[in-house]
Design a binder for these strands. Structure first.
Lengths: 146, 146
DNA sequence: TTGCGTGCAAAGGTTTTGCATGGCA
DNA sequence: TGCCATGCAAAACCTTTGCACGCAA
């Protein structure tokens, strides 16, 4: 429902933030890093505005919000795949920050299971599995932490 | 090395905190909930002390600390020694905000699958499934929103 | 007696909110 | 012109730290 109404004005700040997130590819940044970026540039964007735009972009599925190893502050990442990402799962490595897109039948079953056995309708766009990726497991033996 | 030295004194506060965590079974609480509990009781326990004990208990494997994505504060759960001390999966309802914990066998399989097929070691302390819970599915027709 | 445990207060950080002003449509 | 967006400052929060005193061993 709800047609494609503008809902939001197009502003210099909003555009600057989206473009910056896009320019990072699949890299991730924290709010303070974003703020620093705009401080270094001529584009002035207040941090309150950054927070508010990130929230909207995350709600709209344009970016994802993560909590990494240092759970002090959240970090954000642009979603390039857009639509396709609604249909598969994501594994986020807490060590290197890599996001792994996974198309796997077994993982699809999870959604069915949650639905049938737990009556829970999963939101695949937002759900992310946190953990340690293959690369990091191989290179960091001390990853055996709890 | 280093034998089993005392290392920690036995104090009223430490005992009260551990007993309270134990009394919750597999429920989870935040620090503020714990503080409120002691405020309601006659047992006075400072919140600094709560933090410091929770940290020790978590380090010692007596309790589990969850830092869930999108939650402002950490929550803690007692680990019953006798029973299986498996980690739980968490389902977070985006509609009502309820956090549902479950240790369904099928969900445990997910961890094995990710490990074996994707070489990904999942961190269940941070992973959360987002979606809509049974209650909200039944009562809210317009739950497609956030 | 020794030295860890306790808890008040304050610091440190991130995120949110109030409110007057600015800018898009 | 109407309203949302902006951004400064301040508030709200969670968590950690400093320090003097208390208490277990």
């Amino acid at each position: 429902m709800a047609g494609k109404r503008p809902e939001n004005y197009q502003t210099r700040q909003g555009q600057a933030i989206l473009e910056y997130m896009e320019s990072l590819g699949d890299g991730h940044v924290t709010v303070s890093q974003i703020a620093r970026h705009f401080a270094d540039t001529e584009e002035a964007v207040g941090q309150t505005t950054v927070y508010r735009h990130l929230e909207k972009l995350a709600a709209g599925g344009m970016i994802r919000k993560y909590i990494l190893h240092d759970d002090k502050s959240a970090c954000y990442q642009y979603i390039s795949g857009g639509k396709r990402c609604r249909e598969h799962f994501h594994l986020k490595c807490e060590s290197c920050g890599d996001l792994i897109h996974t198309d796997c039948d077994f993982l699809d079953e999870i959604a069915r299971h949650l639905n049938r056995r737990h009556h829970f309708k999963i939101n695949m766009l937002k759900t992310v599995f946190y953990g340690t990726c293959k690369k990091c497991l191989a290179s960091a033996p001390a990853m055996a932490r709890r």
